[in-house]
């Protein structure tokens, strides 16, 4: 075996590591570029605001946008308060005991359950057992359970970043523990909690597998009236138009992809920049 000079071997290895990093970064940029390039021409006001026509081969994707929006809003309304409360419990109240360890393990496992299994669970419990049917509420409940571990983890991080001394100062003045959390800890953790929530919204707007059997349908001729309606959604629509319908015009597929991707990426960017901004402008 040839023994390389350490300096040279360092140079070689660094180049290799750099190339690996490029391999990790370039694909995503290529994907974004590819979709923007192919999809930009199909985006128009009409595409965004009208109903599909002609077996979805023409017209717009309005019902899919509205559908995704309604599911995501319902899901976050359900999951955010529960997740924040759970984070408050873990960060502010929980003692270091067996119960806490079990909760943490449960959170890790909830986060690891495959999304399609959430779909099965949602079908079994919300659609069938609770007889909610294939509906916005069934899908939103499914997604909210799936998103719970993410919300808990980010909210817990945000709470944990509030210095312990603030809690002591407040408690030492005779203020109760809950009041301390409500008036000192939560306001200071809020930016972190909100950026976490936005990231979650971004993630669940792109999820397909959990909504396959709980809310999404192939085609509905009108917009939803209540949370018990079925809806079209952007990711499911993309799946349908790209794999299930032969001779689909390319512009519809790329247009849908671009809308979905931009929605998700915009929210992610807002969250990432928001987090950076709040870190810089932290009051302590």
């Amino acid at each position: 075996m040839i023994k390389l000079n350490p300096k040279l071997s360092q140079k070689l290895s660094y180049t290799l590591l750099f190339m690996a990093t490029m391999l990790a970064i370039i694909p995503v940029l290529v994907i974004i570029f590819f979709i923007v390039k192919n999809g930009a021409s199909s985006i128009s006001w009409e595409f965004l605001t009208s109903m599909p026509r002609n077996g979805m081969r023409a017209g717009g994707i309005l019902p899919a946008i509205v559908g995704t929006f309604s599911i995501v809003v319902c899901a976050i309304i359900i999951t955010l308060p529960i997740g924040v409360c759970a984070a408050i419990y873990l960060n502010e109240y929980a003692k270091d005991n067996l119960l806490t360890r079990i909760i943490k393990l449960a959170i890790v496992n909830l986060a690891g359950v495959p999304s399609v299994v959430y779909g099965l669970f949602g079908l079994g419990i919300f659609v069938m057992f609770l007889k909610l049917g294939v509906s916005i509420i069934a899908g939103a409940l499914t997604l909210s359970i799936m998103e719970l571990p993410v919300i808990i983890t980010t909210a817990k991080g945000a709470l944990n970043s509030v210095p312990q001394s603030f809690r002591e100062a407040s408690l030492s003045l005779g203020v109760t523990r809950w009041q301390t959390i409500r008036y000192v800890v939560l306001p200071n953790a809020l930016p972190g909690i909100l950026t976490g929530a936005i990231l979650s919204i971004a993630r669940i707007s792109g999820e397909t597998a959990p909504i396959l059997f709980t809310v999404a349908v192939f085609y509905v001729p009108n917009l939803p009236n209540s949370i018990f309606d079925q809806v079209m959604t952007l990711p499911y629509h993309l799946y349908i138009v790209s794999t299930q319908i032969p001779n689909m015009p390319k512009n519809v597929i790329y247009g849908t992809t671009l809308v979905l991707m931009m929605m998700v990426l915009t929210m992610s960017f807002v969250a990432i920049f928001g987090r950076a901004y709040f870190r810089k402008h932290r009051k302590w």
């Binding site: 001394s165 407040s170 408690l171 003045l173 005779g174 200071n188």
Partner: peptide, 25 residues
Amino acid sequence: RKRVSMLFAMPIPLPMSIYNNIIYA
């Protein structure tokens, strides 16, 4: 703690205005 209050080694103002710091408790 309302009757027996405590001043810590390091000053710990709460992250709010001077007025609100006083009026908080």
